[in-house]
């Protein structure tokens, strides 16, 4: 439980950080809240020779209201997400999800950028960002690019992020006013990653679902956008036969690991239960 030796860097701008990453390539790792990276270093599952602490870069902080899009700086902590009035009003599912991450101590340190860049299928924000159809702003030696959350994750700890790139912000399209939302997470205890979790955003028109987006957490080696399930629900009245079909479609795309949270079979079924419960709660909350 003791990390290996490393050199500590504390740049004050994105350009400076990128320059350090470029000069050390694979040997360097950005450090945000440290609450995923440092445990891995203590277990020596990660042994970066250069740590690039992003805490000194003011540009990476803050939440900005762009009307149709809200942009959240990578270094915004999970606790700040919970405390944001703007998010509570426009994107309440972010607050709901953040409150289910770890515990208060970890949320004071852990950042949105670190959570989505990490690539751990256990993280809750990646699935949520897929549900919200967010995109990530990546800064590298050749400037900036944007990658959709739904395209970003390749395998556990493998993402579209290049070693010399930084994730600087997350851009989220604001869902329609009156939308229904729910993040359902089954976990063994406070501070645990999900056995299975589901994020749902939907809008209702009369008794009919006019749009629906469903994503799943920790039931494959990446977060999963459940596009078939989302399509099945869209246009329906959430009658039980349709919900059953959507749940089955969501379960079908899971490929969970068997671990202390339970065997794969259980976690697949729990993904289905989480989808079912999230749909019911989201529908209850939706106006229109």
């Amino acid at each position: 439980m003791i990390p290996g030796e490393f050199t500590y860097h504390r740049p004050s701008s994105v350009a400076e950080a990128v320059a350090i990453l470029v000069s050390h390539g694979d040997e360097a790792r950005p450090l945000s809240g440290g609450h995923s990276l440092i445990p891995m270093m203590k277990l020596r599952m990660a042994a970066p020779e250069h740590l690039v602490d992003l805490a000194g870069i003011a540009d990476l902080k803050g939440i900005s209201d762009g009307g149709a899009t809200i942009s959240i700086g990578a270094m915004t902590t999970q606790n700040e997400l919970i405390g944001s009035d703007l998010l509570t009003q426009k994107l309440p599912i972010i607050r709901e999800t953040s409150l289910l991450i770890a515990d208060p101590q970890i949320r004071y340190m852990g950042t949105l950028g670190g959570n989505v860049a990490n690539g751990d299928p256990g993280n809750d924000m990646p699935g949520l960002m897929q549900c919200l159809n967010a995109s990530y702003v990546l800064a590298g030696p050749d400037g900036e690019r944007e990658v959709a959350a739904r395209e970003f994750y390749e395998a556990a700890y493998f993402t579209a992020l290049a070693p010399e790139e930084l994730l600087t912000a997350v851009k989220i399209p604001v869902p329609a006013a009156g939308h229904g939302y729910a993040y359902e997470k089954l976990k063994r205890k406070v501070g645990d990653y999900a056995t299975a979790a589901a994020a749902v955003i939907l809008t209702m028109d009369g008794g009919t679902v006019s749009s629906c987006s469903i994503a799943l957490t920790n039931v494959a080696d990446t977060p999963l956008f459940a596009s078939d399930a989302s399509d099945i629900i869209t246009g329906s009245t959430l009658d039980s036969a349709t919900v059953d079909r959507a749940v089955a479609a969501a379960e079908a795309i899971t490929e969970p690991a068997s671990d202390g949270r339970g065997p794969a079979e259980y976690r697949t079924k729990m993904a289905g239960i989480m989808v079912r419960r999230a749909l019911a709660r989201a529908a209850e909350r939706a106006n229109g």
Binding site: D103, K189, V190, G191, D192, G260
Partner: peptide, 16 residues
């Protein structure tokens, strides 16, 4: 040996 850390080894918190 599986889960020899407090991530898996169940130590209840005040919540549970």
């Amino acid at each position: 040996v599986m889960g020899a850390s407090f991530m898996d080894f169940f130590i209840p918190t005040a919540v549970e």
